[in-house]
Design a protein around this nucleic acid. Structure first.
Lengths: 306, 306
DNA sequence: AGACGTCATAGCCAACAGCTATCGGAACCA
DNA sequence: TGGTTCCGATAGCTGTTGGCTATGACGTCT
């Protein structure tokens, strides 16, 4: 007997319908059927009478139902009580993140954390790595997702590499598509450039200079969303993390050869232990990444580091 | 969160000791440690403070303990209530079995069934297949473990092949041991023979006759235990299932080539549905066999059929 | 210092929960 | 009667995981 089997059992008892119950539990119908069957053989008695389109509880099922409900309720209570004592009932996580992450996978991760710890306040600051590092040091942030390597000489941070994201050239959809490009191909071509302070600005400029030319700007100064809209409007190309193109049908991302990528790390102050809420966020976030990686639901061009 | 993890948690809380708790739960210590750790990360808080030789509950653990106990108690109650409704609280199973099985693995199987269904009365009848089949037909048995093929022409039985057991030649320990024997080697050699009615008597006689000779008897007429004692006493050899030699240091079993084996089947009347208790016995027994097979705890010379 | 006791870690394997694809049979409808 | 639809069961595959053994780390006691 397992709690999950009981949850499935209650779902079927409520829905009087295997397929609908499976949908509600977010699993495939055969998986649920199999678990119910396992529970039945474990208990040694059928729990449902499966008349066509009319699933009903057997007496054994009737006897089990209230106990199953109570066990599940107890499990929920236990979860809450422990969370309360662990200081995760209330609390606050102040998280810094780069714009590309905010636009990309952060939303789902935050949703997951909020679902797990609904009482914890979530504050997100969007900014370049330099600003985030400064705010971490000032104690204005608990955690930050930053770009490595750090420019600042401040070694008072612990960093943990967690992601690698590929940079691609974003162009307007339909503009003579290519399989891939070299940085060299950007020479003379008008670029839409981020405002000062963005890591991507430095990255792009460095790449061009290393290729031996100074890039030409069609427009500069925007935030992430503005830059993408300018590209959509045909003002020019931009170098961006491929993940921000997810869900932007008007834009095409062309990979660069040799590949250009950035390493994203989770950083916090070395001198103070992160709050329990911050630790919980870190755990949830890492779990979210590995899960997404496993389920192939990560945006393209993002790779989870071991 | 899983019920088993909670059971492990309660065990550790009671014992204040991981290793002892693991013993009590009949698992290896690392397995238990891993489950406790999984529970802790699942709940987001440590449950034990692991001071050397002084394991104590954290506040979170204290909060969880009563709820865990209640969930486990509910699970137990649910099991009992369902069993009661399924008619397994009381009831009776009348089981027939051949002497070799009774002497061999049946004891452990019965213990397991009794543990699972303590309210069910267990009656065992030991006898040859012919007698068992007759008693099944008369309604004096619910289930029987018999030797296939059936001699009787009564087709009113459902049989399910479950085991194959090897026959070996039992001789006194120390008597010029051989790696293997042919049936032919029994010619002229005094045999200890079972009484009429034993399947083994027929099997032995048939094998000898097929090899072209009539066996010589040193003594005949005993039950299983007596036959084995006669062999131990040096009266002669006997053909027996290798499993009955398990735990008889005074006897050696020599395999026959070509191999001689018997198929054991579980039989019940075709015309009446077995009682719920009998069905439960069947399930438990089959599970016992596959478990034993997996854990390599079957007596030698016995093979579980798929 | 060394032996012991105790929990954690590492690495391996079998079992299983999950999936997709498909079947079988009841109900419904023309 | 013969599709068609719906719904649960079945089959076969895969990734995850609970279990094991062996070993490590580290305190305690002789």
């Amino acid at each position: 007997m397992q709690l999950q089997q009981l949850a499935y059992f209650v779902a079927v008892a409520d829905a009087r319908h295997f397929t609908q119950a499976a949908e509600r539990m977010r699993v495939a119908q055969p998986s649920l059927s199999k678990q119910i069957r396992a529970l039945e053989t474990d208990l040694g008695a059928p729990l449902f009478s499966r008349a066509r389109g009319n699933v009903t509880l057997t007496p054994a099922g009737e006897a089990l139902l209230p106990l199953a409900r109570r066990m599940l309720a107890d499990a929920d209570t236990a979860r809450r009580e422990v969370a309360e004592l662990a200081g995760l009932r209330k609390g606050r996580v102040r998280l810094g993140a780069t714009p590309s992450l905010c636009a990309g996978l952060l939303a789902d991760a935050l949703a997951r954390f909020h679902h797990g710890y609904p009482g914890v306040e979530l504050l997100v600051e969007e900014g370049g790595s330099r600003d985030l590092v400064r705010d971490l040091a000032r104690g204005q942030l608990d955690l930050a997702l930053i770009i490595l390597p750090l420019q600042s000489s401040d070694p008072a941070l612990t960093t943990e590499e967690i992601l690698r994201e590929n940079l691609v050239v974003a162009t307007r959809q339909g503009e003579r598509p290519r399989a891939r490009m070299r940085v060299e191909d950007l020479r003379g071509r008008p670029l839409v450039m981020f405002r000062r302070g963005y890591d991507l600005r430095e990255a792009t400029l460095n790449a061009c200079r290393q290729a031996g030319f100074e890039p030409r700007f069609a427009v500069e100064g925007g935030e992430m969303d503005a830059v993408l809209r300018f590209v959509e409007a045909g003002l020019g190309a931009a170098v961006v993390p491929s993940m921000v193109l997810d869900g932007r049908p008007g834009l095409t991302g062309t990979p660069l050869v040799p590949g250009l990528s950035r390493t994203i790390a989770l950083a916090h102050r070395k001198d103070v232990e992160p709050t329990r809420a911050a630790q919980a966020f870190r755990t949830t976030f890492l779990a979210f990444l590995t899960d997404s990686s496993r389920e192939r639901t990560l945006p393209p061009g993002v790779e989870v580091l071991p």
